[in-house]
Amino acid sequence: MPVLNEADHIEAAVASLIAQDYAGDFDVMLALGPSTDGTDAVVRRMQLADPRIRTAPNELGTTPEGLNIAIRATVNPIVVRVDAHSQLPTDYTRIAVETLLRTGAANVGGVMAAEGKTPFETAVALAYGSRVGLGGTPHHVGGEEGPADTVYLGVFRRDRLEAAGLFDENIRRGQDWELNRRLREQGDTVWFNPALRVTYRPRSSYSRLARQFLSTGMWRGELARRYTSANGLRYFVPPAMVLAVAVGLLLGLFGVVRLALGHGSRWPLIGFAMPAVYVAFVVLATLLVAARHGVRTATWFLLVLPCIHYCWGIGFFFGVAKLTRNIQAYTGR
């Protein structure tokens, strides 16, 4: 588990690992980044209670470096990749290992079951788990068991993971997809099992959510530029939407200015149709997905959905334009 500034989540996440009902030997390796919120003190307290919790320093604090540091610091033949925002059900490791043995896959994973505690977090969780939010991929909404392009987190055979070269430390987000791409290229199978459902705690504030999806969109754009196999149609929907709404607004405003000056016809005003269609889409999605969860959650959903779409879509353009490193350095993400 890579860990950075997770004082609010780390204790529950690690407790879920210690509580696994897996019968074999296991240990917990945390790659600790330079946290500033008291995370390390929480970890030290947990270590006193259970010696299976070990740590290694991750000076850069990034996810792929932390994952590789933790993997290299362990020796067991199966590697369970976990996240500080996730909580594993007690049978997760047992089912995953059984699936590895049954299928012969190099990596198995399941569903990221987002759950929120506050109305804002609940709104984010609903967006994660619906087709209107993140596109409806199986590792977000579920599906049939079988081979997949990628899965959430992942439980790996160490020998196949090492043969693929571990995680690419030059890719800050999307590193799971990119590693699974290499596993498939070397002839291995990535297997999706919906029985593996991992509770995920969403970001707790609007600004954190915006930064998360700006970064996610940038790295998806970077991957789309690098690899043809990353160019699935669903990845282009958010940037296409951002572009269409922006062009529509500009065209409509151009029409308003021309009319105010007494020039031209009204046809440019049709550009306002695009933002109007998107607003209608968000309102309809809110009624269908979030309304039954209460007024506060539904109100947040009205704001969360555009945040995810726009930050992801704008970030995608930065990634395609090779600006990922510059923006990453500026935001520190």
Rank of each mutant, 00 (worst) to 15 (best):
G33V: 06
A19F: 08
R54T: 10
P77D: 15
V75K: 14
A49L: 14
A15F: 03
T63E: 15
A49G: 14
V42Q: 04
A31R: 04
V75D: 15
A49K: 12
D40G: 11
D50F: 02
S16C: 05
L17F: 09
D21P: 01
A84D: 10
M29E: 07
R94K: 13
L32P: 01
R52E: 06
I10N: 00
T55D: 07
G38Y: 02
T62R: 09
A84N: 07
A41K: 12
L30G: 00
S86Q: 10
F26G: 02
D40C: 05
D8M: 08
A13P: 00
Y22M: 06
S35V: 01
G24T: 05
R81P: 04
G33C: 03
T55Q: 08
L32W: 03
V79D: 01
L48G: 14
L67H: 13
A56P: 05
H85Q: 12
T90D: 13
R54C: 10
G61S: 05
M29L: 13
A12I: 08
P51H: 08
A15S: 14
D25S: 14
G38V: 03
G66S: 09
T93A: 14
T62L: 13
A73I: 07
T93L: 15
G38R: 00
G24A: 09
A73L: 09
I18N: 04
A15W: 00
A13I: 02
D8W: 09
H85N: 14
L67A: 11
E65Q: 15
I18K: 11
G61D: 02
D40P: 08
L30H: 00
P89S: 07
N76M: 13
A31N: 05
T36V: 12
Q47S: 07
V14C: 03
G61P: 00
G38M: 03
L30R: 01
D40T: 11
R94G: 06
G33W: 00
S86K: 04
P57T: 07
E59K: 14
T74F: 05
S35Q: 00
D21M: 06
S35K: 01
R45S: 15
L60W: 08
G38F: 03
R94N: 09
F26P: 00
S16V: 02
